[in-house]
Write a protein that binds this DNA or RNA. Structure first.
Ligand SMILES: [Mn+2]
Ligand SMILES: [Mn+2]
Ligand SMILES: [Zn+2]
Ligand SMILES: [Zn+2]
Lengths: 151, 151
DNA sequence: GTTTAGATTGTACTTATTACAATATTGTAG
DNA sequence: CTACAATATTGTAATAAGTACAATCTAAAC
């Protein structure tokens, strides 16, 4: 909105410009949110959090811009068990662990040659997603404790 | 429905029984469809195809039973770019290629040690999904042809 | 300051899926 | 065989995530 505000987001501003996306106020806020909260948020979570400080924000704006960011290769969209889409910054390739209990998506560093292939069995690869599903460390420990208490 | 019909599906019948699922007429048809059409169908596709011969079939039955099959470990649910869930038999582990053009999900044989791990970084793994996205061989060739014609 | 392209907003709509209650089918015990 | 209980199926209504679209707003170029 103001020049001062834009100044604060210099880094994100440059990223958007480099991808030919006009760095609007809302776009910067959305990008900033994802960059600073690397927890693979959904559109709804992003909307709720930003609209606390910007009550005029529209859900449509969030959806629109997330789609633009994905198309332009800034974000990747992650689908889990549930029906909602979640978002992650595209930077160094990594895998994800989706916890069926707490619904968190946890980064998993995994060095596999897969990420470098640009075609497989004749099909042209644009993106690779490796997703584990199960019970995360936290939830597993909690369950263990409960079991012990019962004994 | 009839004993005769059950007989035809002996193999699928046994599979369901072994998982403690009652082998109802509808369940056998759904399982049979997925087993015989290994093209990762959606609930809607399964519904449309089976209801051609069984017009009384309800969408809810299809959804219910697909969910049961997933919970019991007979099927895995695959999420793509689009919002619909697609289904695959759990047998030998393999990866998938999702074509962004024709929306087909193509099996990719990929021998990676990943499949055998049962935990990663302390998180308990129940399932691994490797999904490539891009343009499949078919669609890529079609595009090539078009480009040639233009020249 | 006007113009104009593009961004945002709010509402209505779509699509996939689930909740739920009524009905139907099955398997079992008398 | 018949009655009963347990489970499955069905149809409708509801939900949830996301998209279409038209009106309004913004910004930056002239
Ligand atoms: Mn991540
Ligand atoms: Mn497959
Ligand atoms: Zn967890
Ligand atoms: Zn294709």
């Amino acid at each position: 909105m103001t020049d001062r505000h834009y100044g604060v987001h210099g880094e994100f501003r440059d990223l958007l410009c480099s991808k030919n996306i006009k760095p609007s106020y809302q776009r910067l806020l959305i990008l900033e949110y994802i960059m600073k909260n690397k927890n693979h948020p959904s559109a709804e979570i992003i909307f709720k959090n930003i609209s606390r400080s910007v009550p005029t924000l529209s859900r449509t704006t969030v959806y629109n811009n997330l789609n633009i960011f994905v198309r332009k290769g800034i974000l990747s969209s992650i689908k889990t068990n549930k029906s909602e889409t979640r978002y992650d910054i595209i930077e160094i390739p990594h895998a994800h662990f989706y916890c069926l209990q707490c619904k968190r998506i946890i980064d998993v560093d995994l060095k596999i040659p897969l990420y470098r292939k640009n075609s497989i069995q004749g099909h042209k690869i644009e993106e690779v997603q490796v997703q584990f599903r199960g019970t995360c460390r936290n939830c597993f420990n909690k369950k263990e404790k409960k079991t012990k208490n019962v004994l």
